[in-house]
């Protein structure tokens, strides 16, 4: 069962609706004690990364999240929390991935927020992208991106620059796009995660 980390950042109705449609069981994690009953975790997040990190810190869940070794998926700002630093609010993040979250530079050809469906190219073999063709479209809406990295980037997308659409290290995964809003392939990805 998936435990959704609740730390006060963003609404999760669309995410839980997607899990309901897929018949993937889930519950809520508010305290460290809640974590024991789950074998997977999702860290959701929307809005301001610095503010989200402050809320996560205030929840007291940070040491337990970093210490555990169950499959854990950060979505959007939840993924950015896994990096070492975000330009949004000039904030230190969890530091699970030694890479940074940076701001897109807007120009008429590359508007910000990066809004809409873009192609995602998985760079490595991984269960998360099973049955998802390389170059499939996922739904993005974000102004900050995680830099591309040869070691940690699991899937890449091109916008004004090539960035990390997905990252992976050990039991930690992140996706910048919204799988709960990405049609069929988004649902495949959530299903894949539940089986890791």
């Amino acid at each position: 069962m998936i435990g959704i980390i609740r730390y006060g950042a963003g609404n999760i109705f669309s995410l839980t609706s997607a899990l309901d449609r897929l018949e993937i069981p889930y519950g809520m994690v508010f305290t460290e004690a809640d974590m024991a009953q789950y074998d997977h975790f999702i860290i959701p997040g929307v809005g301001h990364a610095g503010a989200a990190m402050d809320k996560l810190t205030a929840s007291g869940l940070v040491p337990a999240i970093k210490a555990q070794n169950k499959p854990t998926l950060g979505i959007c700002v939840g993924m950015q929390l896994l990096t070492s630093y975000s330009e949004e609010g000039d904030s230190d993040m969890l530091g699970i991935f030694p890479i940074k979250t940076l701001k897109f530079t807007a120009d008429p050809e590359h508007k910000v927020p990066h809004t809409g469906w873009n192609r995602v190219f998985s760079q490595k073999d991984n269960l998360l992208f099973t049955d998802i063709p390389v170059g499939s479209h996922f739904y993005f809406v974000h102004s900050y991106f995680i830099e591309y990295d040869d070691v940690y980037t699991l899937a890449a997308t091109d916008y004004s620059t090539k960035f990390s659409a997905s990252i992976w290290q050990d039991n930690f995964y992140g996706v910048q796009f919204h799988p709960e809003k990405s049609g069929n392939y988004g649902e495949v990805l959530l299903k894949n995660f539940s089986k890791i």
Partner: peptide
Amino acid sequence: VKSVARQISIP
């Protein structure tokens, strides 16, 4: 909005 979000997987 809730009914739509429950059933639709696009924004």
